[in-house]
């Protein structure tokens, strides 16, 4: 993803560049019609009291007021942030550990490095909705549930993975770590590859221990990549909808209902288009802020 500033001094290039607009027209039409226009409409809806099945509506701030005064809204924000922070932290840690193990493993020419990498990457090929279904089967609370059976061998459980509100959020986070580690692993592995061999050798000569090498050389040199990973994970996790839908449906009792899910429920279960759009507008605002941070960070990394 490079954004190069081209400076074509040759006069030939000046002549070459005819107008770009005919090449850009299809892109602009699709994006304006099916992306920008709906976005503007959501923002408009959020300032109305629209409901499905009712034609007349008025412009009002009531939707936002009712979102912010709703006690559930604070809960949802707390759930969303807990979900994002824990998912992203462990996706990063896991991604780093696996990437680092493979990085060292390949240096030592260990067998199985490709196998491990492939087994992590496979998780990316699986649709979020299926990840939810698969983990729901894994976390089955009945005596036939496999994870509870293994825990019982060690004298634990049975754990109410999906029906205890506190544990359900942890279950959703674990499934999301499963989902998001691969992306971080790939990026961090690419980052590790860019560390010059000479720096590591110099550290060896100085007699730095393995832990010191990791914390004072390796992690600082890939910190820009770590930042990008973190941000991409935050964005991906924040927009998660499908996996939670099939794993818990937002339950039990709203314990795993993140913002995206509640926007959907306001609109399609409570038919409150205004209020649901207000939540969607908040999601949109957060998405845009994250994109701006990403854009600035990416520019710095490129330089």
């Amino acid at each position: 993803m490079t954004l190069t500033k081209q400076k074509n001094q040759l006069p030939v290039f000046k002549k070459m560049s005819t107008q770009p607009w005919s090449l850009l027209a299809p892109l602009l039409i699709v994006l304006l019609g099916l992306f920008l226009y709906p976005i503007i409409e959501v923002i408009r809806y959020s300032f109305t009291n629209l409901r499905f099945g009712r034609i007349e509506y008025a412009y009002t701030l009531h939707s936002f007021k009712s979102v912010f005064t709703d006690r559930n809204f604070l809960d949802m924000v707390r759930i969303t942030f807990t979900f994002v922070i824990f998912s992203v932290t462990f996706q990063l840690i896991n991604g780093f550990i696996v990437a680092f193990a493979i990085y060292i493993g390949e240096k030592l020419k260990l067998k199985g490095s490709v196998f491990v990498r492939t087994s992590v990457i496979i998780s990316m090929a699986i649709p979020g909705i299926i990840i939810g279904v698969i983990w729901r089967m894994m976390l089955d609370e009945s005596p036939t549930g496999i994870l509870n059976y293994y825990l019982s061998l060690f004298g634990f459980g049975p754990v109410r993975f999906l029906t205890d509100p506190k544990i359900a959020l942890i279950s959703v986070i674990i499934a999301n770590i499963w989902r998001g580690t691969a992306n971080n692993m790939i990026l961090l592995y690419a980052g590790l590859k860019t560390i010059p061999e000479s720096i590591l050798e110099a550290a060896d000569v100085d007699g730095a221990g393995s832990f010191r090498k990791v914390f004072s050389i390796i992690i600082p040199s890939i910190s820009p990549v770590l930042m990008i990973c973190g941000l991409l994970s935050i964005i991906g996790t924040f927009n998660t909808f499908d996996m939670i839908m099939s794993l818990t449906g937002g339950g039990p009792a709203g314990a795993t209902e993140v913002l995206a899910l509640s926007s959907y429920k306001e609109i399609f279960v409570n038919y409150s288009l205004g209020k649901g759009s207000a939540i969607a507008a908040i999601i949109l605002l957060i998405n845009i802020i994250m994109a701006m941070i990403y854009f600035n960070m990416n520019k710095k990394v490129e330089v």
């Binding site: 226009y37 976005i39 409409e41 959501v42 924040f238 995206a260 649901g276 845009i288 994109a291």
Partner: peptide
């Protein structure tokens, strides 16, 4: 290949679109 004034703004716009949850556009659609 082309140089035009709002190119960088448009590239930034593309990036923002990329980060937006599909839920947002699904509602009005």
């Amino acid at each position: 290949r082309n140089k035009f004034r709002i190119k960088n703004n448009m590239m930034f716009g593309l990036l923002i679109f990329q980060m937006i949850s599909p839920l947002v556009i699904a509602i009005p659609l």
